[in-house]
Structure formats: C-alpha cells, structure tokens
C-alpha cells in the first residue's frame, strides 16, 4: 500500500516536472525542472531496490550533466527577445512521432513479456546492486573499463590544451 502511494507520488511529481521542462519559456527553469525529474527517477530506482543505479542517477545526471547544462545556458545568456522568438511548438510534429514510436516499442515489450511471464523481472532482478555492477566492471569488463579511463584522460588533456589561453612565449 505504502509502496503504491510513493510510486504515484513520485510518478506524479515526475510527470509534472517533465511537463514543466517542455513548456517552460525560461531554459533555466527547464533545467531545474529536469533536476526534479532526475530525482524522482532515482526515487523510483530506489523502490525497485536498485540502490546503486539510484545513486548513479543522482551523482551523474543530477550532479554532473545538469550542472553542465546550466553552465552552457548561463554562458549563452540568451536575451529575452531571443527566447521569445524560440517557438516551443516548432518541433511538436517530430516530438509526437517520436512519442508514438516510443509507445509502440513499449507496447511490444509489454506484449512480449506478457507471453513470457517473469522475463522482465528475471532480466532486471539482481543486476542493480553495487556488488553485481562491480563484479562485471572489474572482472568481465576490466579492459574496456581501463581503456575508457584513457579516453577520458585524452579528452581532459585535450580540453585543457585547447582551452588554455596562450601566454606569449618568453624567448
């Protein structure tokens, strides 16, 4: 019972926040609404007992990605008239099509899982824990994991070298 209450609470909040992401005229408010969406999503993961995924959701999306979004929006510093010119509904046709496609895919997944009872729960049950993720990351996917760190290293060094202001060389 309590579970159902919390589920509807978080889902309701998430939908309301998502609505505000799309229809808010101020990009800054949109991003802040997106933050609420991410937190509610993390709460849903907690209810599914995927605590690790929930923590990652907060750390990565709420913590890192959205801060980046905020930075970009503040950097662009759009003037009110530029914001007024941006029409939210320009993309509604494409958005509606994508939404229909998503609904179609979800319907197919649910239809398939209805035939094969328990396929969804079996596929998702034990994988969300820290232990399971750690096992995969440091045993089966050890090499890809370490290589990724080198890609990130290259990207960091690149960002620093390209972004740095060049001091005139002393000769």
């Amino acid at each position: 019972m309590a579970e159902a209450v919390f589920f509807y609470l978080f889902t309701g909040a998430m939908l309301a926040a998502a609505w505000s992401v799309v229809f808010n005229r101020q990009p800054l408010y949109s991003v802040l609404s997106l933050l609420v969406v991410m937190f509610c999503l993390a709460a849903l993961f907690v209810m599914l007992q995927a605590y690790f995924v929930a923590a990652l959701q907060v750390l990565l999306y709420a913590g890192a990605v959205l801060v980046l979004f905020l930075f970009v929006i503040m950097l662009l510093n759009l003037a009110p008239e530029a914001l007024a010119r941006m029409r939210v509904f320009t993309w509604q046709g494409g958005g509606a099509l994508l939404g229909l496609w998503l609904a179609f895919l979800l319907a197919r997944i649910f239809a398939a899982s209805a035939q094969d009872e328990g396929a969804l729960s079996a596929a998702s049950a034990p994988r969300g824990s820290v232990e399971a993720v750690g096992q995969l990351l440091f045993e089966k996917y050890l090499i890809p994991f370490e290589l990724t760190s080198f890609i990130i290293l290259a990207a960091i060094i690149g960002a620093v070298t390209l972004g740095k202001r060049e001091v005139p060389a002393k000769r």
């Binding site: 090499i143 890809p144 290589l147 990724t148 890609i151 290259a154 990207a155 690149g158 070298t161 390209l162």
Partner: peptide, 17 residues
Amino acid sequence: LLMLFLGLELLTFSLYI
C-alpha cells in the same frame, strides 16, 4: 565489439584534439 568502439574512440578522440 566493445573493443572496436573503444579503440576507435581512443584513436579519433586523440585526432580531434
């Protein structure tokens, strides 16, 4: 296939910069 992706990304990331 994971290594295909990571190897290519490592190569091209370096080249972008």
